[in-house]
Design a protein around this nucleic acid. Structure first.
Lengths: 201, 201, 201, 201
DNA sequence: CATGAATGAGAGTTCATTCAT
DNA sequence: CATGAATGAACTCTCATTCAT
């Protein structure tokens, strides 16, 4: 009898509206009005579905995390275990299908917001911890496949993660300095270089 | 006899005020009033010395760039040419004297602001290009010292730079995940690992 | 066979919802959403049964008036005519069965709303006039029973009414200053004191 | 050199702006914009001098309290101690010079706001407690002058206070029912009637 | 040079009311 | 009758910027 529930759909639309606007104007520049416009809804709708602007951002953080996860799962398909590390790097940095420039720009903005908003920081950390654990297990697989010591898998994982985050940052701010398609290759070389550099098991 | 110009001193005080506030509250959260307070001056003074808030930020970008440069010069003192690459990484990431957590937090915020403010982006790029050129020459020195091909010096330089920026980001958002004193060592290993991995010249 | 009308029930539920919420949050703080929640209905239902928020308030005014009337009737039962004045005061101020703290808080809020909403003011006046007429006749009874001049019955009635309203106000704002069970006794003393002070008839 | 401080003047102007608007439109209806207009300043000025709207209201509470106190002091001048109780009632209720219809309307609104704003409630209580103590001492004086027991001075004080507050309420909501100049006389009669009714000391 | 009061545009948020289902 | 999503106007509050002193 009542109007059918469409909350989940609306929430996604609004969250994607934030992503689109934020990629151009930053978090502060993403006004509720602009977000609503980008989502194709009236301004009041935003606060009907979210208690406040921060809540949209936090939902966006999880969403971007899940996008990477999804792309990684796709890319792993049919790959040997030792190549999953490369797949993870590609999932984050490779261009082409599934790459998402807006998400990258947002991710940089999320880093800055997490400086002052503890809740954002917490949400970011949840995603980062999950990715770091995944990365560690991928390093383990790669090291094991090459019969290398897995002693420094966490260090390598952290280095890879930092490199990925750094590429995001450079992509956003100084994309002209990075030749197209360069980043994924370089980070993969660094990662597998580190793997190879480990002593035999 | 005119009274001595204290304009330059005031400008520095204000700019450092921005750095201090921005490290806690982000760029948008750094109100003119808070900046003035941190600088120990009246709010009106800020706009006497700077046309607008953005101008302070741009001065801050150059200032942070010069801080790193200065620390690098200090650290190079007495080091062999091949170790200058390590000195650069330390200048950015090593803890202890000369390390500056506020500057790191600001740097992350500057990255986010450069998404929407072209002038900030340009200022950031000037500093980044300079650092990248320096890094490239440091890679060249390191490769040459080990009689390696310098063909991929730019790739290595970019990778190192990304790793440094990424560490900044992780430091700010998820410092708990990074053991103290870990970052500089890991990035140096990655850098020299890449150097060693190059073919002989 | 039409389904039984539950409109009247719903209206009461909603009106009581307003009373409950308004006692805690004031009239402006009583949002339609909160009222609906307190009434156990969906927000949309409220405007199905009432054209607007003000209409609920006006119904509430009459309702609270009738509550007092009802309690008065109950308390009069078996009392001598000269004691009906005391019963009226008790009906308003006595604690125990039939006392209604929420109604008192609402009544204070209604007074404030009547400053700006003419319709509310009119509704309040209707109730007040009725009570004042009743009070006047009760004073008449009390005076006549004591063979006193009834010349100032209206003054006494007004004084009693003011005292009652004032106790409401103090109860709401500074209940700590009023010992429990104190108010009804004090006002009754004042009322019968004034009755006694009148000249013999 | 700097612009001279005028904060105190501005704060008073704004507070009186609130009083003027609130007397017509209630507290919620007194928007910052209307308050500023009534005070003859730009909207932004309001929040330059007050952190928020509530702070203006709290200042107004103290101000109204001091208005009554001031009028009382004036009216006491040259009166016998036993008549000070009457002066207090006149200070609150007498018409003519020093009477302030806007203040009365605000006071009713303040009562309603104190239901939901604890800070307002606290401010109201501070004023009420001070007045109640004063009233008690005035009752004491009146009783002592007539050689009556002072045992119930607090009860009488409370009754008088309730009557005054109740008159405010009736004045605001149903002024037509109260003949002009009636209230002060009636309350004074009630007060001195109660004094006379006490047993000899 | 310095001060801090003033400005006013625009932000996030709330909410009475409407209405498609 | 009932639902709850949608609307958009209006609110309080913030703040970069200006400028009289």
């Amino acid at each position: 009898m009542a109007r059918p529930r469409n909350t989940d759909i609306r929430r996604q639309e609004i969250m994607r509206g934030l992503m689109a606007v934020m990629a151009e104007a930053g978090y502060e520049g993403a006004t509720i009005s602009l977000i609503a416009q980008a989502a194709g809804v009236a301004p009041g709708v935003v606060h009907y579905h979210f208690p406040n602007k921060q809540a949209i951002l936090i939902e966006l953080i999880d969403y971007i995390g899940s996008l990477v996860q999804f792309r990684f799962d796709e890319m792993c398909d049919g790959l040997a275990a030792e190549d999953h590390l490369g797949a993870f790097i590609d999932a984050n940095l490779a261009l082409g299908k599934g790459s998402n420039a807006a998400a990258v720009a947002c991710w940089v903005g999320i880093g800055a917001e997490s400086v002052k908003q503890p809740e954002v920081r917490a949400a970011y950390r949840r995603v980062a911890e999950k990715q770091l654990q995944l990365l560690e297990s991928l390093c383990d697989r790669a090291l094991t496949a090459k019969r290398k010591s897995t002693k420094h898998k966490r260090e390598i994982a952290l280095g890879v993660m930092a490199a990925i985050e750094g590429v995001f940052r450079l992509t956003v701010s100084v994309s002209e300095l990075i030749p197209r398609g360069f980043a994924a290759a370089t980070v993969k070389e660094m990662a597998y270089g580190a793997v190879s550099a480990q002593p035999e098991n």
